[in-house]
Write a protein that binds this DNA or RNA. Sequence first.
DNA 1: GTGAAAGCGCTAACAC
DNA 2: GTGTTAGCGCTTTCAC
Lengths: 344, 344
Amino acid sequence: MTTINDVARAAGVSPATVSRVFNGGRVTAERAERVRRTAAELGFAPNRVARSLRMKQASVIGLIIPDIENPFFTSLARGVEDAAQQTNLSVVLCNSDEDVDKERNYLEIAAAEQMAGVIVAAASRSRTDLTVLAQRRMPVVAVDRRPRGASVDAVMVDNEHGGEEATQHLLSSGYRRIACIAGPEGTSTSEERLAGYRAVMRDHLRESGAGPLPSEWVRHADFRVEGGRAAMTELLALPGELRPDAVFVANNLMTVGALEALREVGIEPPAVGVLSFGDVPWASLVRPSLSTVQLPAYDLGWTAAGLLQERIAGVEKPLQTVVLRTALQVRESTAGPDAEPVPS
Amino acid sequence: MTTINDVARAAGVSPATVSRVFNGGRVTAERAERVRRTAAELGFAPNRVARSLRMKQASVIGLIIPDIENPFFTSLARGVEDAAQQTNLSVVLCNSDEDVDKERNYLEIAAAEQMAGVIVAAASRSRTDLTVLAQRRMPVVAVDRRPRGASVDAVMVDNEHGGEEATQHLLSSGYRRIACIAGPEGTSTSEERLAGYRAVMRDHLRESGAGPLPSEWVRHADFRVEGGRAAMTELLALPGELRPDAVFVANNLMTVGALEALREVGIEPPAVGVLSFGDVPWASLVRPSLSTVQLPAYDLGWTAAGLLQERIAGVEKPLQTVVLRTALQVRESTAGPDAEPVPS
DNA sequence: GTGAAAGCGCTAACAC
DNA sequence: GTGTTAGCGCTTTCAC
């Protein structure tokens, strides 16, 4: 492995000069050229590890996400990656698997590796602990979920608004007994989506004099396919007037499960309305096509990376939270309880 | 930031002893305990960067994949991650985006960061160049695709066999004019799948005295949704007896595109048979359900990580290539040209 | 503009 | 067993 010293000797200059050539210090054009040429001849590539040790900072940012198999997060990751590439930062992707311990492990790695900064979609709002990074004054941006009490920049989705819009749409389509399959308790995203649902439902029920929201209509599941399926099965087992005629599902994977559960008992949307928070991949192939609340996943990543890079560059300004809006995408699965069945 | 020296001073021992405590050197139990306690009090965490510089090797392995949004690769990544976790290696995920330049950039980073090893699913069989890593004697395992001429361990899928099995199945189901949407020319996976298809088709055509395989039946696309759609559209435009009654699609994403193209012109499998190489996510929701050649994505990753760890540990043995078998999953989309349409 | 020299935090000889 | 010491390759004062 050729080092900066080898190049220096070969080019007849000092190591310091070689370093300056590669880091934009003042060197006369002629010398710089000579250094560059000999470096190329020798196949020299700067050793980033040594550089990091000296600078106490690596040119790598960490991205910690809870589920790499969820297309929402892969899309977010692409956003981060594309933005980072602009400033020659490389991205290290860590999958916390919705597990706070694994997540802590990765946070510690990020600290120990002295990464330039970290973007984190927290596994838990209450239990994710960012103090390891805060201690080292490492720039951190929370994305999608903000751990309680963490004073970091954040890029969030307007989940509550999305939940409201979704529920409102189901009501407008003629559904009345609208259930909600929410995510794990304690996840901010889930809580906010649920809050949007509750707000709209409460208003509606009061106006129509129908009493309080039946607690059976809200199910908590785990944001995974299986959880969605189980929750939907329970909802379908509710007796008489409690049995929902539509369901607002708080994420894409659970929606897949819910659809499977419906299919098992021979029900096809829109007879029971289904609205998914977050796009389902290849939604185009699902029949009937699925109404969704579209999440700005890629933009979330892109924006977070932008914020992080400002902080890394040392920009001093008050903490900020950027909130990105969702967009309701109406398709066939919420056409209304009495709509014509969708031709296959 | 507390260093090994701080701990040493506080515990009244030498830095070397502290190092030994954390790296399994011989230290008396009593001293070791004292060191550990003071380390905990001071919140000491070893600086991995310094460690890497000294050891000339990091405890990180790189995983370079061509498309993070393809579920095949995310599943593979999970396999790598789970295996790596067993030995406390962390995994850095790099997305080459099927782009040889981006890929080279990541390979250089892996070298410069002195990663312990690299697992790479090459973007191109002919143009991916692993010499940067070979020069530094860095352990490398090729997975899914092996760059030509690279002398590295490899974990591969038996693509040719998969292609044969798929094509044979389509013939057995009664299809006769079977086309193939292959991947980019030069990708080993695509070439092998295509070879399997060609072998079976050639035999069949010869036996039935039907002349050579029409070149129109083989289309090369880009392994993406759009490419699959375009190729299928072209196939459907073929005149008369050339128009295929079934198609073998060489990866999952292109299958999605092909299905969309079919739907656009109102054709539903199995009237035209569709067989996908590789699972389509949420295949359960697609109607008619999709026959697939199942890939051992997770196992591929797991096995590759195992091989790599052996090499990192310094195991000396001849280069090996592990080939994992595919499994044909017959579902509705290949029921035969005259099968009853699938009830929706 | 350039070079000499110090040192980032750690590990591995080596001497005891 | 344990401590002393010499770097790993780089950046960055500080003189010149």
